[in-house]
Design a protein around this nucleic acid. Structure first.
Lengths: 119, 119
DNA sequence: TGCACTTTCAACCCCTTGGTTGACAACACT
DNA sequence: AGTGTTGTCAACCAAGGGGTTGAAAGTGCA
């Protein structure tokens, strides 16, 4: 997944209203009116938010009878999960590498009484 | 984790430059100059990006000798992971619930030849 | 102390964004 | 066919964000 795509996804989630929408959509599909109900903003504003989420691929609005439904798309969450997992793995590796470095310094100290001068 | 906090975290990642910084920091700590090197922007701009990442808790700059180091903080990634995991779980539950609904409709059809009139 | 480098602060510019209102197209339903 | 709801488009406004430059603190070291 490209950097720009990731940025767009994160950007879509960079707003409390949209996070709330996503949270509620996780419980099931909703019409735009149902979605908009709790917010004190115009319907057009809600459509704008929806547009952002849709462009990021977080949400879809499948064709159908008139009060069209808004549906959470889960694939993007999988992509985000993979992305985050990469950092956790790298971080773990770094820590274990750090541990082994510290361990070898420990050994060097025992051998030479000075670990700092080692190249 | 509050909605606003999540929004701030996602907002910090809603920029290709900052995503790139995070990606590179996953490989290890770096000084600001090292971080800034690949980008064609002023050092001040890089500090601004760093500030955003720091405010979101994604990065820290532990006190130390002058060319201070920038370090990726992993806890926030854990929080993000938990957050995303919630949606995946809810989505799974909904799907399995949907499956059971479909299955029961199937059964009703076999029994009554019409599942739509069931209350 | 003085010099170089790192870090921060402030002002400014331009473009994006979250929100508004108003108008209008597209559906569904009697 | 006509009417109310749903969905979209456009113009506008205020605020925020990414970038710049310039200047000023802090910090490390010969």
């Amino acid at each position: 997944m490209s950097t720009d795509t990731m940025a767009r996804v994160f950007g879509a989630l960079a707003d409390p209203t949209r996070i709330d929408m996503v949270t509620r959509l996780a419980g099931g599909d909703a019409t735009v009116n149902q979605l908009a109900e709790p917010y004190r903003m115009s319907l057009q504003a809600v459509y704008k938010h929806l547009r952002v989420l849709e462009d990021a691929g977080l949400v879809s609005r499948p064709a159908g009878p008139q009060p069209r439904v808004v549906r959470l798309e889960t694939e993007v969450f999988d992509r985000m999960d993979e992305w985050i997992e990469r950092y956790r793995r790298q971080a773990e590796e770094r820590y274990s590498r750090l541990d082994s470095v510290l361990a070898s310094l420990e050994t060097d100290n025992e051998e030479t009484e000075d670990g700092k001068e080692q190249s």
